[in-house]
Design a protein around this nucleic acid. Structure first.
Lengths: 342, 342
DNA sequence: ATGAAAGCGCTAACAA
DNA sequence: TTGTTAGCGCTTTCAT
């Protein structure tokens, strides 16, 4: 049976067999095929065998789209993150946790562009994904309110969302900066400078503020020591000039992000970098290969990613639960650059 | 109208409005709503306005799944790669090229596990994606033959697939190794060693073979110089011992992959590494921050990713076209480590 | 320019 | 245990 090549004569693309085709081939009802495909135990062994044979003979593959349309669930969650093809331990943790939970992950890069972010989020909503994790960037996410009202579970990661109230997990920026600062004071430093991202973005704002607070609590003035701003070689070089070569030079440095750390190292060059005490905020790839190896306060990225999925699962299970904000502490990793004494 | 909260009384999850609801709200036929949603120009302005108003009032969002089921196309291509969430320029290029082509990208990590790879590919086929790019790992992809027969476009990237015949794009491993080798001979090196991945994997096999050929063509014996194998600190340390501290020590080294390069640098330590001439195969993150900065032959990863999408698009457009294999040359990036003379 | 009705491939009530 | 039937939400002939 079923020997003929395909129903098609000439050039048309081959048509895939459907459940109806399998049912006809096996001589059973559609419903029975569905039962076999879904491992329903209430099918007689000989029927099951006949169906299996037909499935193999026709190379039948169920159409997931139809299944999803009918059941209403996709078994897929979305992740809208800065970049999927860069080092992104949160995303790695999300992917693994999703897999452990039997969910497929659909990840897309916002590139930290507001328009792109919106495009991705709206697209995920149109696909009726079971839930969305977003590392938010844009300034107003009010356009998602109707989706939330319609029951779409959303979790924010690394930054809070603006204009809507959703579950959220992020690092304890303030205490991380404090850890970096106090680690350096332990090695005798009193003049400690900060270079980090611009205060227009949430994390840049939080970390600069925390550094100012640390300086104040330590009885230091802020003059020439705190340099949030655009991370470009020029801007970073100017900041370092002010901080390191002024009348009261800083002897130690806290950087506010991975990008800042790398730019600082490039601007300083190997000789200057090896003499200055540096604690980086956030891990740097292959930090152990640098000279000196880089001491950092690292975000618990894996924990953050895992928590994001857990928050999402909780909300999927109970849409009415109160909105929750989880804060994750950072951990100090000592490697050398932060232990250079005054 | 439509003022009531939702059709729902108590705890049930809110039901989304469908096209029928919009049609009823607007007092038009279903077909008209569909026309408006799809920007069909043959709708009268007042009808269009009424429909738009209803869409806004109900916060209607079309269900992409239903659309896909009906039209048969998803507008989505899949990419099964080693790892998302790591530096992966091929994937970045795929994502960008897909976006430029108006396609959504669905990426998943195989982790270079055969079972995982198969799971992902089968899942993508069940979702009826418009096409699949795969960085293959497994040894037998024959299970995909029925999908190919059913018209599923598949393109292999970085490695060929086994057991099936599909379009493919990859680096010119042999000539890349040749470039690295000859660059070192230009600085007077005659004893040049190779450490790289095990020959069970395609690229490891190709590169080791190319290195042996280069040695041979240069009139050198192979003894103690060629070390393919597992990339572990122990194995790499043993290989380096043999190559660098034997009776005729090598004065230069070619590594066979990014992982190999990083492991070699870690095993050697900063002092030994700064004395040995090294050319890495493939780019290393922040290679410019190392001391000395690392000279590499880099794969044209962006070109490879872009080409993969282009091959896929071509096959989607013409399923009958002959299978094509594209080979992309590597480029030498001089930074210091490869220009240390004998 | 608009509408009525069929059906994409599947699951889920309900019958038998 | 198996089959019949009615949709999921949309697009698409085909009439009007």
């Amino acid at each position: 049976m079923s020997g003929a090549r395909d129903g098609n004569g000439t050039g048309g693309r081959p048509k895939r067999p459907t459940m109806v085709d399998v049912a006809r081939e096996a001589g059973v009802a559609l419903r029975t095929v569905s039962r076999v495909v879904n491992d329903d135990p209430t099918v007689g062994p000989e029927y099951a065998a006949k169906v299996q044979a037909a499935i193999t003979a026709l190379n039948y593959r169920p159409d997931e789209r139809a299944r999803q349309l009918r059941t209403g669930i996709t078994g897929t969650i979305g992740a809208a993150v800065r970049r999927i093809a860069e080092v992104n331990p949160e995303l790695a943790a999300i992917e693994q946790t999703a897999r452990e939970s039997g969910l497929t992950l659909f990840a897309a890069s916002t590139d930290f562009e507001e328009a792109r972010e919106r495009e991705i989020l709206v697209s995920m909503c149109r696909q009726r994904l079971d839930g969305i994790i977003v590392e938010p960037f844009g300034e107003n996410h009010g356009y998602l309110q109707p989706e939330l009202d319609a029951g779409m579970p959303v979790v924010a990661m690394d930054r809070p969302m603006s204009g809507i109230s959703v579950d959220c997990v992020m690092s304890d920026n303030a205490s991380g900066i404090g850890t970096a600062f106090h680690h350096l004071t332990r090695y005798g430093h009193r003049r400690i400078a900060y270079v980090g991202d611009r205060e227009q973005v949430y994390s840049g704002r939080e970390r600069a503020a925390a550094f100012r607070a640390a300086l104040g609590a330590h009885g230091q003035s802020l003059d020439g020591l705190v340099h949030p701003g655009e991370i470009t070689p020029e801007r970073v070089a100017a900041a370092l000039d002010t901080a390191l070569y002024g009348p009261e030079p800083a002897t130690a440095l806290v950087t506010g992000s991975m990008d800042t750390t790398l730019t600082v190292l490039r601007v300083l060059g190997p000789k200057a970098a090896s003499r200055l005490a540096i604690v980086g905020f956030d891990e740097v790839p292959h930090a152990d290969l640098l000279q000196p190896a880089l001491t950092v306060v690292a975000q618990q990225t894996a924990k953050i990613g895992r928590t994001a999925v857990e928050l999402l699962l909780a909300r999927m299970a109970d849409p009415g639960r109160p909105v929750q904000a989880v804060v994750v502490p950072l951990t100090l990793t000592v490697r050398g650059s932060g232990e250079i004494p005054v």
